[in-house]
Amino acid sequence: MSAATLSPMERLPAPPPSSPSLAVAPVAAMSAPAADLPPSRPIIDIDHVDFFYGQSQALHDVSLRLDEKKVTAFIGPSGCGKSTLLRCLNRMNDLIDGARVAKGSIRIRGIDIHAPAVDVIELRKRVGMVFQKSNPFPKSIYENITYGLRLQGVKDKGRLDAVVEKSLRGAALWDEVKDRLHASGLGLSGGQQQRLCIARAIAVEPDIILMDEPCSALDPISTSKVEELIHELKKEFTIVIVTHNMQQAARCSDQTAFFYLGRLIEFAATRTIFMNPSNPQTEAYVSGRFG
């Protein structure tokens, strides 16, 4: 291959091939700013994962540990595999033909989620998800939120009412919609719809909430509301957020993982990633030189 056709991958220093530096280094990096972050234990343990869509490999040997009740941001240019990894965490990739984890394992609370004994339905109850495009069901707000609970067989009206209020308050939507709980969820504005989806996700009380570019379709005001919400939510939930917007990652996450071409380049506390990245690729990306 001639020098003129060098891919960015080759121009930039390749990520360390062996796992110890990656798997351990982030932990070390994370423990370094222990002074400003409360100590916590890992809830998600991604271990040397190779992921394929049919023949094409989307993730190369990714290892990561995410902490409980923290916000972790996945950043990186389009097609770098961040969404793929996110969708691995609650096995939404199962729905795609030919998608598979070829190597490695993902453990949540120590349990390999791809093990045959794991019930994917139960897994998804524990690991909620908010999508890029807000997708409220064409039902009333009330029914949108109670959907998950009703699936679990909860019929008690009092309890459902309580959950609706709690979830809507949790999603900072209660005051805006409390008078029209039985109006269609499709009648809300874009930002409200997305918060409704978040309320819907937290109504089933998951441990982890995955957010796949939740603000990419929202205007700045709605975005800031959702970001505030994320801040509130991390008191109770572990949050993993995929974002294109580096300011957003800087504003609302505790730890940040930078992906590039299907590889994890760097994983550290958000401040470290943005102020003092150890990898030149990361620096190039966060300073806006490519991506």
């Binding site: 998800m129 999508f131 959907y147």
Partner: peptide
């Protein structure tokens, strides 16, 4: 029927 309806529901733990 949009794909989002299915994904949203599955992500809430529906079979």
């Amino acid at each position: 029927v949009p794909k989002g309806f299915r994904e949203g529901s599955l992500a809430l733990g529906a079979t």
